[in-house]
Design a binder for these strands. Structure first.
Lengths: 180, 180
DNA sequence: GAGTACATGTAATTAGTTACATGATTGA
DNA sequence: TCAATCATGTAACTAATTACATGTACTC
């Protein structure tokens, strides 16, 4: 499905970037809550996208031999990206979740053992929820930015990430209630 | 991390199974909402688990040459599974979500185009939510089974799946509200 | 006899992670 | 001068999907 391709085209479509910038973007609070890639996957993909005519790059020489490459999107790349963006696809099969797998098999644990796991997961998801909610308040004052701005996309995914963590915490709390 | 290994050990720990039974289990409503594997991944993994002494199997000959293999867990396999089950691990990095990726880049769409996508996703997630909620009501009467039963594990993951879909729908509805 | 569910495997490819490997720039 | 950050790449491996490939049992 070449999802990384579109994740990268979308970033470079916003503004010219280096591979390193792309890696940094995937570590950012908002983006990291629904996408991620290591540099070892990014650099080969960038090379491929140039070969396919989706991206161009300018080289800036650093020191003796190091090359810094600034990538820009080509008209073909922009078209490909916009076509993908408009695509109304079926929802994905639900993602694998290792803690839900453990929960499914929890009959093989004592109540105390399972409760310990539930509480640990709950604390971690609460921390993640608080971390994301704090950013939402600080950066956006809990209010959606204007339509047509880049910030609105950032806001919506952040809002979705907070909701997702709240929902996970609510589920864990229901499970805890059964065992307490 | 060998997660498929533990998913399989957990199933065979419940009762002896064939590879085909395992494949079927991964297609079941409850399990499919947090785990999945194709038979092309299952059969090689079963072979590996036998080599590692985690599983044994008895062969039943069908027709001329077809073998039906019924797998049982070994004491070593059960120990390995229980050790894994008790393991309190850090929550995973959030899974990739292609629709959230599109949302992140939605500034490049017109309001109408994006609204169309939002509504389509919303309908699909509502259908999934209703499908799961119906099972929860029909099979469990919306009430958790007794502690220590296999059914409680089934119930908890199903409840979690309903909550997850409800939360996704709530998020999509909030986004729709911005664009309408 | 046809179709569906049962039943098991391999091959090829794509996606993703961890480790290996190198070098430049900036600021304390 | 040391550490952190900037900057780019490959190799080896694990995980997962799609396609190829075959054969059995039961029911209409």
């Amino acid at each position: 499905m070449r999802n990384l391709k579109y994740a990268i085209l979308g970033l470079v479509n916003r503004e010219p970037m280096t591979g390193y910038d792309i890696k940094k973007a995937f570590e950012d609070r908002a983006l990291t809550s629904f996408w991620h890639a290591e540099h070892s996957q990014i650099y080969p993909e960038l090379k491929k996208l140039v070969e396919e005519g989706m991206l161009d790059f300018d080289t800036d020489i650093r020191g003796e031999k190091m090359e810094k490459k600034l990538y820009t999107i080509t008209p073909a790349g922009r078209k490909e990206f916009l076509d993908w963006l408009k695509d109304d696809v079926a929802i994905e099969r639900t993602h694998k979740d290792i803690f839900r797998l453990r929960t499914f098999y929890s009959e093989s644990l004592t109540d105390e053992e399972f409760l310990k796991l539930l509480k640990s997961q709950c604390v971690q998801h609460m921390e993640k929820r608080d971390f994301l909610a704090e950013i939402k308040t600080r950066v956006f004052n809990d209010t959606p930015p204007k339509k047509g701005t880049r910030e609105l996309g950032d806001y919506m995914v952040l809002d979705g990430a907070v909701l997702r963590e709240e929902s996970y915490v609510a589920w864990l709390e229901r499970c805890i209630k059964i065992f307490e």
